[in-house]
Every structure is written in C-alpha cells, then in structure tokens.
C-alpha cells in the first residue's frame, strides 16, 4: 500500500518534470532551424525586423533590447517603491494600516494582466501623450510604468517575508546599542534579509520579462530600436503578435524568439537558485 501511494506521488511529481522537458526540447527543436538558416549573429544582433519585406529581415536586437530596457526600467521604478513598502509593512506600519495595504497588495497580484493593459491603454497612454507632448503615448515608457506596477506584489511580498523572518534578537541588540529603530532596520534587518530581498528582485525580473499581454496593449508594438517615447516590441509580444499569420521561415523565426526568451528566463532561474543556495550556506 505504502509503495503504491509513493508511486502515485512520484508519478504526479514527474508530470511537472515531463512538461518542462517537453517544452525545452520542443523549443530547441522548433527554434534551431531558423537560427541555423539566418546565422546566430545575424539573428541576435540584426537591427531590423521585417519578415514581409521584399527581402525579409529577421534581426531581433530591437526585441531583446526592448525587453531588457523595459525590464530594467520597471525594476528601477518598482524596486525602490516595493522595497520601502516592504520595510514599512514589515517593521513600521500600525496593524490596521498593514492589513489594509497588505490586502491591496494581494489584490494587485490577482488583477489579470489584460486589465493592467486596458487601464494603461485608456489612462496612461493618453497621459504620456499630453504630458510629454509626443505624437503617440504608446511607448517604452508606458510599458515600463505598467510593468513597474505589475512587479510590485512579488517584490513587496517576498521582501516582507524575508524581513519578518529576521530574528528579533538582532534588532534588540542594535537598539540596546543606542541605534534608532530606522537605523536598526536599515543597517541590521535589511542586510540580514538581503538574500530574500534579492530573490524578490529576481522574481520581479522574471515577471517583467515574461509579461506579454499588458505590454502589447501599451507599447505600440512596432519593431523599433528601443527609445523611451518610441513604440517598441518586446520578445514576448513579438511572438504573440505575429504567430497567428506567420508561415515558413517567419514562423520558425518566431519559435527562435521564444527560445531566446526561454533562455533568458532560465538564466533568471539559475540566478535565483544561486541566491537560494547561498542563503542556506550563509
């Protein structure tokens, strides 16, 4: 009996592994031909994407850079806000405020990305157009702002958990040396929680890098090299927006883009594992 139960659990556990393997293998098989045909360097570093041109062009550097800049920008805005919110909630907020803000953060995490995109499209894009006086508000900036809000819940929740797990004894020691509570949190609690906070940031990177729907709705979706007020296309949106009508080499190239995105996400996961491993040893 025990063995059967054990076997069932093992089988269910292996389903996940099987899907990861399946996706990896499929992406590699589907993504390699186009890269082989176009050349890795031309594919990754080509500055022009035009699969329907008379002489088709398949350079995805604009997508890679848009994804990288978009993610970096979102973190530049989201990490400070999320970090200080987490410190406030974990250490300073009165219980009622903490409950209220905590509920809001959970709700933020549960909002579907298409809703972020919709609000971004209807509010943010026109606002950017009028504030910065540009012809179209659908831009890298709009994507950065929407993503910065979308990464907040994971940054806040994970950092908060890490900060709350710091033993109170450390804080007592600091206070008893005459350090103020704020000094104590910034110089003792935060450093003691740094691997957890790093994990939060890495999760935020994964969230921003992987988001397609909201980005597609606010970024204008033109394959330009990234610039703050230009319409841009991310790796995710490049796959999503053309998959329905592509064929032949064009379709294979989209699979290759997915493969590149997949490698980015793998890299993020490796970074996460590295941090978690160090936390155990440290």
């Amino acid at each position: 009996m025990e063995n059967i139960v054990h076997g069932v659990f093992l089988f269910l556990g292996l389903i996940t592994v099987a899907f990861v393997l399946l996706i990896t293998v499929y992406l590699i098989i589907a993504g390699m031909p186009a890269i082989g045909e176009l050349g890795l360097f031309n594919f990754l570093f080509g500055k022009s994407w035009g699969p329907t041109y008379a002489v088709p062009e398949f350079g995805i550097l604009p997508f890679i850079l848009s994804s990288v800049y978009g993610t970096a920008g979102a973190l530049l805005l989201g990490v400070p806000v999320g970090f200080f919110t987490a410190v406030y909630l974990a250490k300073l907020a009165p219980p009622k405020v903490k409950a209220l803000v905590g509920a809001a953060v959970s709700l933020l995490a549960g909002i579907p990305s298409v809703v972020y995109g919709l609000v971004g499209m209807l509010v943010l894009v026109p606002a950017i157009r009028s504030i910065f006086n540009v012809p179209d508000g659908a831009s890298l900036l709009a994507a950065i702002i929407v993503l910065s809000v979308m990464v907040l819940p994971s940054i806040i929740n994970v950092s908060m958990t890490a900060l709350e797990a710091v033993p109170k004894e450390y804080e007592d020691a600091s206070l008893s040396l005459g350090a103020s509570p704020i000094e104590t949190y910034m110089r003792v609690t935060v450093p003691a929680a740094k691997s957890g906070i790093a994990t939060a940031v890495v999760l935020g990177v994964g969230r921003a890098l992987g988001e397609a729907m909201a980005v597609m709705m606010v970024s204008g979706n033109a394959p330009n090299m990234p610039s703050l007020f230009e319409s841009v296309r991310f790796l995710t949106t490049a796959v999503a927006s053309e998959m329905s009508y592509s064929s032949g080499l064009h379709r294979q190239a989209l699979f290759s883009i997915a493969l590149v995105l997949f490698l980015f996400i793998m890299l993020i996961n490796a970074a996460l594992n590295f941090i978690l491993k160090h936390r155990k040893e440290g």
Binding site: D172, A173, G178, P191
Partner: peptide, 20 residues
Amino acid sequence: VNDLRREIGMVFQKPNPFPM
C-alpha cells in the same frame, strides 16, 4: 531613548551577534 540606551547597554540571554 537612543541616547539613554547608549549609556545603559544590554547583553541578552541568548548570544545574539549580528550576522556580520
């Protein structure tokens, strides 16, 4: 209170060095 605690320090039951 911070000045006071600088002048009247404390050592706790469980050794609590900072992770530094």
